[in-house]
Simulated scan of single mutants.
Amino acid sequence: MICDETADVTIKERMTFCIRYIEIEGFVTKEDFLVFTELKSNTGTSVAEAIDEELKTLGLNYQYLCGQGYDGGSNMAGRFKGVQALILGKQPLSIYIHCFSHSLNLCVSKSCDTPITRNMVGVVRSVSTFLTASANRNSSIEEAISRLPFTESKKTKLKAMWPTRWVERHDTLITFKELLVPIVTLLDELSSSHETNAETASKPCMFSSAVRRGDFVVALATAANCFSLTLTLSEQPQSPNMDLTAALNHVNVVLEVFNNIRTDSEIEFGSIFEDAVKLAENIGSVIAMPTTISTQTKRDNVPASNAEEYFRRTVFLPVVDRFIAELETRFSHHIAT
């Protein structure tokens, strides 16, 4: 059984309850019995009681339960009073699996927690929301894309960024990088237009300055490159025929790729930085190393002889190292299982 909980529009906790089972004829794995149950509270005991009621309603017995999958919250994964512990007390063979997608979600979010990368993600989210929130601006970005035939991207629409689902941000960041030139072109047009709406007139000017910053362009190119490696990792394990062993093999492959990138960091980042420099030139910007002094405390002040070395140490290496550490840590439970 697979469970998750969220609040609906009335701010009431509801639990999604899904049963995955084997059909004896042909031994085909199927998912069924999708139920939405209102929860009185989200404590482990309350959720376990709701699950117990649903199983009774469906006429299912705990003796047939062989696995349970939730997120890693303390109310679900707690060793003593968590849902998985309470269910294990009734059926010791019901192995708890931390949701694979949630584990990857935590890996990606923590890996982008460095200041420069975090700020870049915030700017992308604000710009994406601003341009996609209005039907007029949405059509304007599509028009700007069509007017720039030299854009290599096949994307024609900008995607808004999910607030919590980091694994859904792969497409947003990759698309934003590919469409950066038409995005900047549209922001410049909006900032110089005679728009009477104060929000529409002022925000494009701020956004245009933010996306032209050298650290923003480098962080965007770095994140897009790393996310391109984890994109298949977020898609393939959702296949109905995927099992835990095969999914972990995908993790090990991606982890090996990240370790190789870390070993050859100068060569790997060299191509990323070259791509970032070309991208900056296309939007009328220059990537330069900020001034560093010995008493600097408010930003990264690493020693470097040029801009490439500076951003490799302040942007690229922290993100790659965090990706490696998070993948090894978050999936250690899956390996143990």
Rank of each mutant, 00 (worst) to 15 (best):
K110P: 05
V167I: 12
R330D: 03
I19P: 01
H102I: 03
N260K: 14
R322T: 09
V253Q: 12
V123W: 01
V286L: 09
I22L: 07
N225L: 05
I97E: 07
A288Y: 09
I174W: 00
T151A: 06
T291W: 08
H98I: 05
K90N: 07
T337N: 14
C112G: 09
E168H: 06
E5G: 08
S294N: 13
L173H: 02
C18V: 15
K159T: 12
V181M: 04
V277P: 02
P149W: 12
V83M: 00
V108Q: 01
F311K: 05
N252V: 12
A133C: 08
N225K: 14
E49L: 11
L148G: 08
S146R: 15
K154I: 12
D321E: 06
F17Y: 07
Q63M: 13
L106E: 04
R79S: 12
E143S: 14
S41E: 06
D188R: 13
T57Q: 11
A325H: 11
F100L: 05
T185A: 08
K110V: 06
N105L: 01
T291D: 10
N42L: 04
S228H: 10
V315R: 03
P149D: 08
T57R: 14
A276V: 03
M242D: 03
G122F: 02
E23N: 09
T292K: 12
E38A: 11
